[in-house]
């Protein structure tokens, strides 16, 4: 506690960095009466970019059935932030305990949340990084859980420059060997030429005789 207080005194911006309580809501898209229901509450720490789930209440009355066969109503998942209220849509069937659910918090470089995301997948042998069981629905507590993933905004690709040319004190390129002279480079061609001249010339002279 003392440490956090001193940090607060030194760097006021760290005030933001304290774990923030967040509440994620859901509300059906199609109905006119939008009464948001709390989906989950969590603590988000912008310094470590980690989140801890406090409670999770999946929506009830999930219609059973194959998602491909029926047109399932859409649900909006949203975060009530003072600056922005990002929201995404998913099918109500996504909350069925059959699927592995992941809530994604998209954060910028400073750790501030700018958008949320939601993804489902089949149950596999993944080791979840952060999970919280649902205490209220005891019978499905083992299965029904949600993962929270914090995704930082990517850094755009940079131009990969070629290696810079380094000059030494004399203003010359380091490590570059001095250019060979013409004779040094082509001595073998001259030697070959001379050899051919010797051999061919000698033979020709003999024939004439």
């Amino acid at each position: 506690m003392r440490i956090s207080l001193s940090a607060l005194a030194l760097v006021p911006t760290l005030l933001l960095a304290a774990p923030q309580p967040l509440t994620i809501y859901t509300s059906p898209v199609s109905s006119t009466s939008n009464t948001p229901a709390t989906l989950l509450t969590l603590n988000y720490d912008p310094t470590t970019l980690s989140a801890e789930i406090l409670s999770y209440n999946p929506p009830k009355d999930i219609p059973s059935g194959d998602p491909k066969a029926t047109s399932s109503p859409l649900t909006r998942i949203f975060l009530n932030n003072p600056s922005s209220s990002p929201s995404v849509a998913t099918s109500i069937l996504s909350f069925s305990p059959t699927y592995q659910k992941t809530l994604i918090l998209h954060v910028d470089d400073a750790g501030e949340i700018y958008h949320i995301g939601f993804a489902t997948s089949g149950r596999g042998v993944q080791s979840p990084p952060n999970k919280a069981g649902n205490g209220e629905n005891d019978h499905s507590a083992a299965e029904d859980e949600i993962l929270v993933e914090v995704v930082k905004k990517g850094v755009g690709p940079q131009v990969h420059f070629n290696k810079p040319v380094v000059l030494n004190k004399e203003g010359k390129v380091e490590g570059k060997e001095p250019e060979k002279s013409f004779i040094q480079k082509y001595w073998w061609a001259i030697a070959l030429f001379l050899l051919i001249q010797l051999v061919a010339g000698g033979g020709g002279g003999d024939e004439k005789k």
């Binding site: 998602p67 099918s91 996504s94 699927y99 992941t102 997948s121 596999g124 755009g156 690709p157 131009v159």
Partner: peptide, 23 residues
């Protein structure tokens, strides 16, 4: 589907992106 749940294992919400910049 963008909204319907996926029953396959793995994270379909994140495609693999390869990018490059040119002057």
């Amino acid at each position: 589907s963008s909204t319907d749940p996926s029953s396959t294992v793995g994270d379909i919400s994140k495609p693999y992106a390869k990018s490059q910049t040119y002057h």
